[in-house]
């Protein structure tokens, strides 16, 4: 009787899931499926067992940025004929989850590891173990703050945020009030982008006042309501910097909902369709883009080179760029943006 019920419920769940996918996936899923088939088919043809295995452990998974990183590492895996897995914790505060992932990866005796540490100190013992077992570690994104990695493929977030500050100063005419919305106050990228931006303003632009620095957890809705309150409280606000995709969209929504498009200069970070549309329409003045696909590609590439005993650069700067309506369709920039 009990079992029967469980089966019933599971069946129900399955039914709903498949119904849903069936209904809506038909037009959309076909290309996706082909794509997936294409990427999966290539490695499947060759002797899977012989291929080196490189786990890529990132700081996140769900967000588009990480999905773009994953795309790059998948490409590199196909190009260099290696097996990779890509995983990351659900939020950037789950240090413990990431450590577990690293432990699990080490247990599988990989050829190399690509790792973006949420908390370097917490990962050091495991990385030392990898080092002693001769498993090369390649850092990416915020990297690993130690000598162990043979290479690190990353954006210089401090410098990138400083570039955003320069652009902000230029766009508001070098004086006035501005605010900053960051995703969180504990992650490396959050801290670097905040400090990179605020330090640059403090050093170079004495007439610009940062009236508020807030944290919206990268949650679009919460960031929106938060930014609205800040704009309400500062009617003379001339510029607003959103330090990641969710924050930037929040700021953008707030400015749009309050009818202040054009009055407040909005600068974003990373891409995604919404930001790109806003930049194109002028609602957002511009944004910093990293090279997430490049980060993913470079770290796997570096790992492959390390496995083969080739020389690798210690620091692989994957670069960052300012984009706005004028240059976003250029070949150089367009390649870096993800929808």
């Amino acid at each position: 009787m009990k079992n029967y019920r469980i089966v019933m419920v599971l069946l129900g769940l399955l039914l709903i899931g498949s119904l849903v996918s069936a209904c809506v996936a038909a037009p959309a899923a076909a290309p996706a499926a082909e794509e997936a088939a294409a990427t999966e088919a290539a490695p499947a043809e060759e002797a899977a067992a012989a291929k080196p295995y490189i786990p890529v452990i990132s700081k996140g998974f769900q967000h588009q940025f990480w999905q773009a990183v994953k795309l790059g590492s998948d490409q590199a895996a196909a190009d260099y004929n290696v097996d990779i897995t890509f995983e990351g914790p659900a939020t950037e505060s789950e240090v413990d989850k990431q450590i577990e992932m690293l432990e699990a990866a080490l247990a599988k005796n990989p050829a190399a590891i690509c790792f973006a540490a949420l908390d370097t100190q917490a990962a050091i013992p495991l990385l030392e173990e990898a080092n002693s077992r001769g498993i090369p570690v390649v850092g990416f994104d915020s990297g690993v703050d130690s000598d162990i990695p043979v290479a690190t493929a990353a954006t210089d977030n401090l410098a990138a945020a400083a570039l955003a500050a320069d652009k902000m100063a230029e766009l508001i005419g070098g004086a006035g009030q501005i605010a900053v919305l960051v995703h969180d106050q504990t992650s490396r990228t959050g801290i670097d982008r905040r400090d990179g931006f605020t330090n640059r303003i403090a050093e170079a632009y004495p007439d610009i006042e940062i009236v508020n620095v807030d944290y919206g957890a990268g949650d679009h809705l919460k960031s929106t309501d938060l930014a609205k309150a800040v704009i309400q409280a500062n009617p003379d606000l001339k510029g607003y910097f959103g330090a990641n995709e969710g924050s930037a969209i929040g700021v953008l929504n707030a400015v749009t909902e309050l009818g202040k498009v054009g009055e407040i200069v909005v600068i974003g970070y990373d891409s995604g369709q919404q930001q790109m549309d806003a930049v194109r329409s002028g609602a957002m003045a511009g944004a910093i883009t990293q090279n997430p696909i490049g980060i993913g590609y470079k770290c796997v590439e570096a790992a492959v080179k390390a496995i083969n005993g080739e020389e690798v650069e210690k620091v692989i700067d994957t670069g960052f760029f300012w984009y706005d309506a004028t240059n976003m369709d250029s070949e150089e920039i367009a390649a870096l943006l993800y929808q």
């Binding site: 996918s21 809506v24 996936a25 959309a28 899923a29 996706a32 499926a33 794509e35 997936a36 998974f61 769900q62 967000h63 588009q64 999905q67 773009a68 994953k70 795309l71 995604g272 369709q273 919404q274 929808q339």
Partner: peptide, 8 residues
């Protein structure tokens, strides 16, 4: 379902 990656 749209692109094969998680995406809004």
């Amino acid at each position: 379902l749209e692109t094969g990656t998680i995406k809004p």
